[in-house]
């Protein structure tokens, strides 16, 4: 188990290194680089060169990547060229808001997808399954921004039930404005629900065909008892892994939803930084989001590994000796 965790950890770290390189080298050549922004639009070429030198931009890219990565590891993500604030400060003020948003959405999806997936998977091929599958296919097919825009148009513009934007004073916690959380969270839930339901259903269907479930049915188990005590424990490991992939995907979805609702999170800040060509900000926030995605996937893998009973020792006697 420890070895399993270590290999996964090393893999995740390697992926992180790869992603950070992709991120750095794709954005370090932003046309409006820091020198151009700091020097102003009408600076002469020599002035720009001077600033480049001061900012260390004349060094080779690889050397700058190593410096940047080293700084990032110590918590220094550089300074935003547009706003002038340290990137780490912006990240700290936005990160919690995004965690609340994505966390709420993940919780909602986990409950809904497990219910729908169990219902559909245990009745594969029947009416309930077909209806749920049609819903799933539709949700998967539609891009998140369409679903979220649809919500805004229907519930905010036409219905007037919830605010169409989620701007609240800096320093406030999103919990103080629950009405502003409803639409963004619903948008994210709709965006991830299709994929998650499909994954849970697939896990349930493959479990439901197993000899253990057939035997449970032959033993007279049915309904909620069958689903809760037999199917769910067996489907838990693949289901958790699926939910982790979905949760990581929600970080992408949060980009769209936060932007649409002007929600003060990491995603909307990143989208804004892309528009303003703020290289340091894009790199810092991108690194944070990619790191979070990999962390979620890693934790999902670990949980799935822990849930797998077969990873326990082959002899029950020795394994239980130390237990109270």
């Amino acid at each position: 188990m420890i070895r399993f965790g270590l290999t996964r950890g090393v893999t995740a770290a390697a992926m992180m290194l790869l992603l950070s390189a992709v991120l750095f080298f794709s954005t370090e050549a932003l046309p409006g680089d820091a020198a151009g922004v700091v020097a102003g639009a009408d600076a002469t070429e020599s002035e720009r060169a001077e600033i480049r030198k001061r900012l260390g931009l004349d060094e080779p890219a690889v050397a700058r990547y190593v410096t940047w990565l080293g700084d990032a590891l110590t918590g220094d993500l550089g300074r935003s060229s547009a706003a002038g604030r340290p990137v780490a400060e912006v990240l700290a003020s936005r990160f919690g808001n995004s965690v609340v948003l994505v966390g709420l959405a993940v919780a909602g999806i986990a409950v809904l997808a497990t219910t729908f997936g169990l219902v559909a998977g245990l009745r594969a091929g029947r009416l309930g399954d077909r209806l749920l599958s049609s819903m799933t296919v539709t949700l998967i097919a539609l891009p998140e921004f369409l679903l979220a825009t649809g919500l805004v148009v229907a519930l905010a513009h036409q219905g007037g039930m919830f605010p169409a934007v989620s701007i609240f004073p800096p320093g406030d916690s999103p919990w103080q404005h629950p009405d502003m959380l409803v639409l963004p969270v619903t948008g994210l839930v709709l965006g991830g629900l299709g994929v998650a339901t499909r994954l849970v259903r697939a896990a349930v269907v493959s479990v439901a065909e197993s000899p253990a479930i057939e035997q449970a049915r032959l033993d007279g188990e049915s309904g909620v008892r069958l689903a809760w005590s037999y199917v769910l424990p067996a489907a838990a490991a693949p289901g958790i892994q699926g939910l982790a992939v979905m949760a990581a995907g929600l970080l992408g979805g949060s980009l769209v939803v936060e932007t649409l609702f002007n929600y003060p999170g990491v995603g909307s800040e990143l989208a804004r930084a892309v528009t303003y060509r703020d290289a340091a900000m894009v790199q810092g926030l991108g690194l944070a989001l990619a790191g979070s995605a990999l962390l979620i996937l890693f934790v999902g893998d670990l949980l799935a590994g822990l849930l797998n009973v077969r990873s326990r020792p082959a002899s029950w006697r020795r394994a239980e000796r130390g237990a109270p």
């Binding site: 197993s210 253990a212 057939e214 035997q215 005590s229 037999y230 424990p233 067996a234 838990a236 009973v309």
Partner: peptide
Amino acid sequence: PQDCASALPAEH
């Protein structure tokens, strides 16, 4: 069943 080992619920 034929193969009792796999017919017992693995998680219990």
